[in-house]
Structure formats: C-alpha cells, structure tokens
Amino acid sequence: MRKLFPYPVLVGEVDLEIRQARLDDVPVEFSMISASQRTVALHEIERTSWQTAVLEVRARVPRRELDSGPWTNVTCAAMLFERRTNVRTVFSLTPEQSGSWVGEVVLHRDRHLGRAELAVQVVGTVGGVDGRLIGQDRNPWTIDLLASTPAKKHGVKMVWVDFSSEENAHLLPFRTDPWAVDTSGDEPTLYLNKRFEGLEALLGSGRAADRDVQNLLLSHIAKDTWTTLFNSAVQSVQTDDRGRPEWPGGWRENTLRRMLPDILPDHSPDDALKEIVTRLSNDDGGGDLHTRVLHAAAVQARLTRNLGGFVRALRRSAQEEDQ
C-alpha cells in the first residue's frame, strides 16, 4: 500500500525525545527511558500507586525545510494513544530554539491499561487549509505502564515452574508434559516443567556434546509454541462492519504477520488474513491450511537446520562407535 498526500508534506525527519519522566512529581531513573528501544518503563516495584505520569518531551523538526516550504502557522503536538482503551490525548508543544518544540505530556493512569504510544505530529496551513498534518514521527514511543525495564516486549515469556505444585493449579492437568503454552492475556507464556526429569539439566547444559540435542529440543518447543500462538491469534481476528478482517494488534498481529508469508506466500498480508479467515469459516476443514501452518511454525523454529545438525551428529557418533 502506498500513500498520497493531496498537498506538500515534510520530507525530513520529525523526531521526539523524552527527557524526563515523573510519577506524581517524583522523577524515575533515566535508565527507565530508552531512546534506542523508544520505550519508557513506568513500573517501579515500590511505587505502584501513582496517579499521573508526566513526560518532558522535545520534538525536533527539519527547520530549514519548514522555513523554505509552503507551510504557515506551523504547530507541533504530542499525541498519546492506547489501542486497548482507545484513549487519544493531544498535547500542544511550545517552540524553543532552532527547530525544536518542548512540552509536557501528562498520562493519567486511570485512562490507560498497559502500553500507550506517544508520537509527534506537525500541523500547519497549506494551500489555504488550516490544521493539516504535514509531518509525523515515523517511530512512535511506547510508554509501558507495567514494564520495569525499557525494552520492547517482543518475545514469549519463558518461566520454569513445577507443574505439580499447588501454586500452579492451572498447570496441574499438564503435569506429565515437559512444557505448556498459555496464550491468554497480553503476553504469551511458555511454561517449562521443572518436574520433568532431566529437562532443565539438558537445556541448561553448557557441554558441547549436548548442543545438537539441545537445539533439536528447542526447535521442537518453539514449533509447538508457534503453532499454538498462531491458532490463538487467528481465533482472535474480528471483522469490521463490512466483513473485512481486522488485524488484532499486539503479539497476535505480530505472530500472524511473521507466519502468513510462509503460509500463503503469494498473498499480500491483508489478502492472506482474509483468505485464512474465510477458509476457517468454511465447512471444508480449511483444506491444506493446517499443513501450511505447521510448515510456517517449523520455519520460525528453524527445525530444518536444527534437525539436520542433530542427524549429522548422530551419524558421527555412530561412526565413532563402529571404530
């Protein structure tokens, strides 16, 4: 998909910098703000009852381009948005010196749930029309209310637990399994069973001799996980009022976007999503869809490479025994 603006827009980069974050007027450690990850973590173990977070921001716009361009009445605003709550708050910024704009963004805790996005927009008058969007931050910030480290949460949470213990009652039915995948909530979790004899020792082993078995096992776990994630994600796809499927956002959308190109390679992501939703709602069982899902999960889990390595190692050790 390509976009067209019916008026001239900024070509140069617009960028937002977060200079400080305060929870109820008490600053948080600067290491909770990561410019490279474009993430702010607002969760501090000992301060869970805060009400407002104030972010001091500075936006940079390509000043030379703005000065020489056709835009007038240029203003700059920071926009806070959360998909889950659909809250959208706009904060106008004030010009400082040389092409930068500063201001404060106030985040009220009771209006947000988990992760809000913060982006900057440049607005001006072009061709006699006021308030036109002429530039925006290509890479919005994530303000994570629940994270304690400012890293983008793009992974499956992995924990070792004892499946048979009383604390993990929900895992009791799976107590004989080596692992289990939980896809409920904002972050999928992979539980690894501590009680499964030898599993922890094998995965934690640093011995070179164990490496090939380890890799094969990891691929196996990963393939299971991806399959589960995909099924769960597809189920969560909603359709809009015209019957078009909507991307579900979060890890579910990322899962689909990672796997769909391997499931239906000759479809664009939008077309592929539509196709899958259609096939699943038909009565024919989805055709070869499930085969394709397993293929895509194997690609993500690098099964081919890791199984190949294992087989070669096995052959090697067999030869050694023959001698």
Partner: peptide, 13 residues
C-alpha cells in the same frame, strides 16, 4: 530460560 529459545520465539514484527 535458554537464550537460544528466546531467539526462536521472537515476536517483533
């Protein structure tokens, strides 16, 4: 958890 598993379960777009 083994970091190699984290590599296989990366969820970024």
């Amino acid at each position: 958890a083994p970091s190699a598993l984290g590599e296989l379960l990366r969820l970024e777009p």
